[in-house]
Design a protein around this nucleic acid. Structure first.
Length: 412
DNA sequence: AATGTGGGCAACCGCCAACCG
DNA sequence: ACGGTTGGCGGTTGCCCACAT
């Protein structure tokens, strides 16, 4: 939902069950964030770090609920966000991880540094589904994007296929080795995701605000410092497995296109991507190394602790121009262009530098995000609960995931 | 040129678990 | 123990842009 910010948005505060809706009796704003609001939030976060989001909203002088601030920060303003289109490698990884994890977008996102769950979810709900749809309706199985082929491949006993009925498209998980008692399902078809129709009403009430401003494509550092995020995630997940082959062998069909360091290579510094999840809570990414939470440690009752240390380097005025990166992808850049054209010219010289990041970082924020999540969707799928509690073939999973060449996978 | 339409994606909603007093 | 609050997540909505007609 995207509406122009509306301070008088009807009684509903939009907090969705949390966050508190009253801010000193002032009606809270909803809808799109203005550049001024972004500035306030960024300034506050950079100065004070993350704390209670209600306090953030209050103290930053934002007429927003805490949840809204959190969302804006997490999904848009965070310094370590990567921007622009997903690289082919990222796409492959998303698809692959989705076969493993289903719609657990946050877990998928945790394995794609700089990407948010929302972003991945949107990507999946639009691009991937669209491709599946076209793939399923196309008479040519090997249409266009081979890297995202959803066709079961010869020699595979498991795979990913798309089916379509008049009301929905279902990406089906296909496996034929279900004699394995540890298989999540005894059925040969496992719904992965149901594609609901996008019901567009198309009100076309065009607002006046340019909501596509992009305040900090890479990061802004009002203190002339560099922001780095490291995080430790400990997942203990006994991953149900589909046997040896019960998942899309994405790695086997991925295009092994070389990374373009200046374009969108995940490992490359020019993204300004310093963030990531690191088992060892070190700064591996600063050294050009990427580590991600291990799938093998995911458990049914998942205990997750993400420690996010936002640290600030010094003497770093190097500008990383994000604005050219995405051109090479041929992706839609209008967001960033909008930003460039309309917003925050004074911030550009404070953009983050990856390559110059040093270890002289001072922790500004050391917040713990922790939670215990139920592993309710035991199969990559939608809330299915018919898994019998067996285990996934973790070795195989790890082997497969780690086969993505752009990930330096650390196995604990 | 004006209008219609498809689609991307930012931000909301509702649910739920953890936290806290 | 308990009720209120907070934060995280997945699903959904609908504004706005780009393109088609």
């Amino acid at each position: 939902m995207r509406k122009p910010a509306d301070p008088a948005a009807k009684g509903n505060n939009g907090n969705g069950g949390g966050g508190g809706n009253v801010n000193g009796g002032v009606k809270l704003r909803k809808g799109l964030w203005s550049p001024e609001e972004d500035d306030k939030l960024i300034n506050y976060m950079l100065t004070n770090g993350q704390g209670c989001w209600s306090d953030v909203a209050r103290n930053a002088g934002l007429q927003r609920c805490g949840k809204s601030c959190r969302l804006r920060w997490i999904n848009y303003l965070r310094p370590d966000l990567k921007r622009g289109a997903f690289s082919p490698q990222e796409e492959e990884l998303i698809i692959h991880l989705h076969t493993l994890l289903g719609n657990r977008w946050s877990q998928i996102a945790a394995r794609l540094p700089g990407r948010t769950d929302n972003e991945i979810k949107n990507f999946w709900n639009s691009t991937v589904k669209k491709r599946m749809k076209s793939s399923s309706t196309s008479s040519s199985p090997n249409a266009s994007d081979s890297s995202l082929s959803t066709e079961p491949r010869d020699g595979m006993v498991g795979g990913f296929m798309a089916m379509q009925d008049p009301c929905s498209i279902m990406a089906m998980y296909v496996t034929n080795n279900n004699n394995n008692s540890t298989s999540p399902t005894s059925s040969s078809l496992q719904p992965m995701v149901t594609l609901s129709h996008h019901d567009h009403h198309h009100d076309h009430h065009h607002g006046t605000m340019d909501h596509h401003h992009h305040p900090f494509p890479n990061m802004v550092n009002h203190n002339t410092t560099t922001t780095t995020t490291t995080a430790t995630t400990t997942n203990n997940i006994d991953m149900p497995c589909c046997g040896n082959n019960g998942y899309l062998d994405a790695s086997s069909c991925m295009s092994m296109a070389p990374l373009h360091g200046d374009d969108h290579g995940m490992m490359c510094g020019s993204y300004g991507m310093l963030g990531g999840y690191n088992h060892d809570n070190n700064y591996g990414l600063l050294q050009g190394e990427l580590s991600i939470p291990s799938l093998e440690t995911i458990s049914i009752e998942e205990n997750t602790q993400v420690s996010e240390n936002i640290v600030f380097g010094r003497n770093n005025n190097t500008t990383i121009s994000n604005h050219n990166h995405f051109d090479n992808n041929g992706s839609n850049n209008h967001h960033f262009d909008d930003h460039n054209n309309h917003h925050h010219h004074h911030h550009h010289h404070h953009m983050i530098s990856t390559t110059n990041a040093t270890a002289t970082n001072t922790p500004l924020n050391n917040s713990i995000i922790s939670g215990v999540k139920k592993f309710e969707a035991v199969v990559p799928g939608v809330g299915n609960n018919n898994w019998d509690g067996g285990e996934w073939d973790l070795e195989e999973l790890m082997r497969d995931v780690s086969s993505f060449p752009f990930i330096d996978y650390q196995v604990e």
